[in-house]
Design a protein around this nucleic acid. Structure first.
Lengths: 235, 235
DNA sequence: GAAAAATATTGATAAATATCAAAAACAGAG
DNA sequence: CTCTGTTTTTGATATTTATCAATATTTTTC
């Protein structure tokens, strides 16, 4: 598996124990959660910084507490493709390879928990739920990447953007149709969707003039006509 | 994880035990291989038939002995995206989800080994190598899918075709630059590369007229200028 | 082996997107 | 608040790819 962990995630409540409600730690007993908590180290990273770089030792697994990151893959010719965006609750780094095969860049200030991958693996041998949950997360991630293949292979620019919007609406904790915060730049959107920044900009203009969306602020998206945007995204 | 298993694979020699040299069964003792052999059931499937369909119970893992298959994913609107092609030595069906998330269609007559997924999982608990190898295969597959994201997101039609050719050259057992058998139709190539059949056809014509490739027969590709094709594929 | 069916190629044109260039909007520093 | 640098938008045009239609080739059937 890879470094990317993008589970379909219901926003965790970190109230009691830091891991409650989090998909990876679902169904675990209080005792098990306590043990896990001992393994976690909380830390943070500033906007623009990298959590880790491609081809460096994959020693840690991360769980995003707050903020957003972009998963980037650099290719031989130096160009990059953004593989996905991750948000609070999402996991990063559950790869099997010795090195990370992607880089992770912070789009905002990011708070996260950091686990030793080795320890997490050891623990997963002992705690049945943990292991099963890890597998489930991987399944979900792979499923999402396959959907993205379809998006890049078959959809038009406008549809790709709507797809991104729907994805953000579903995955950003606290997002509502009238308030979706876009943490990434237009260039990031372009690199994610396989478009140029100009095409992204023009599609946004079109969606605006058609009354499907509005931008009270540059990075604050309002979806005015959800059925229409959803329809374009599915198509 | 998903149903797709596309290990970077050195053609297995099925001479002594059927599993020798096969990535999944690498480093296993003769005793372990014997045990595994008991779990395998050999079978075959005709061209055009499906090994399995999307959203059906994922009860078996397959290992291709001979022939080629296409991994297809059908989306809500009924359109399909080909996720990848599999060849001798490749594994299919090592998903974690209860159902397959892709369909597998035979491009040719296909011979394969069939394992009960449950049994394979049980065995992987006991045989360290097996489990590790399974993880490694998944890593490789995921890595490949990410590369494909880049291909669909960034490359032009001509480059995508060259990418496919290089992939076939590397992965088809026995393929050489002057003899790459294309088991898929032009439509399959198009659905894999996110193009139309006409664009595929025109790109082939261009590559031919530029002297980079030749087609002694419709599905028999000769790469005449390997550096040039490789260059286009990387780019 | 000839006819029919399926698949692939080619042509003309339209649509979508990229490219290059300039203007506008925005964000941060002082 | 104003200046400066960056990001975004818009405009004009070129390139790429899709679409629709016709022809050619290959495969299948009898």
């Amino acid at each position: 598996m890879s470094t990317i962990f993008i589970p379909k995630h219901i926003h965790p409540t970190y109230s009691n124990t830091v891991f409650n409600d989090c998909l990876l730690f679902h169904d675990m007993t209080p005792h098990e959660l306590d043990r896990l908590e001992n393994y976690a180290e909380q830390s943070k990273c500033e906007e623009g910084e990298y959590l880790f770089r491609q081809d460096t030792p994959a020693d840690f697994v991360y769980n995003v507490i707050s903020g957003s990151v972009a998963i980037e893959r650099i290719f031989t010719n130096g160009r990059r493709q953004i593989i996905g965006f991750l948000f609070p609750g999402d996991f990063i780094g559950l790869t099997h390879s010795p090195n990370y095969d992607c880089a992770v860049r912070c789009l905002t200030k990011v708070e996260f928990y950091k686990f030793s991958r080795k320890r997490l693996n050891t623990l997963s041998e002992e705690v049945g739920h943990l292991k099963q949950n890890m597998e489930q997360i991987k399944s979900a991630i792979f499923s999402r990447v396959m959907e993205q293949l379809y998006v890049l292979g078959q959809k038009k620019a406008l549809e790709r953007l709507c797809f991104l919007f729907m994805q953000l609406l579903e995955r950003l904790p606290g997002a509502r149709a009238d308030r979706v915060e876009l943490y990434m730049s237009r260039q990031d959107m372009a690199d994610y969707l396989g478009l140029t920044i100009e095409t992204v900009s023009r599609c946004l203009a079109k969606l605006k003039s058609d009354g499907l969306v509005a931008f009270p602020k540059l990075n604050h998206l309002q979806i005015l006509n959800l059925p229409a945007v959803s329809e374009l995204a599915e198509c």
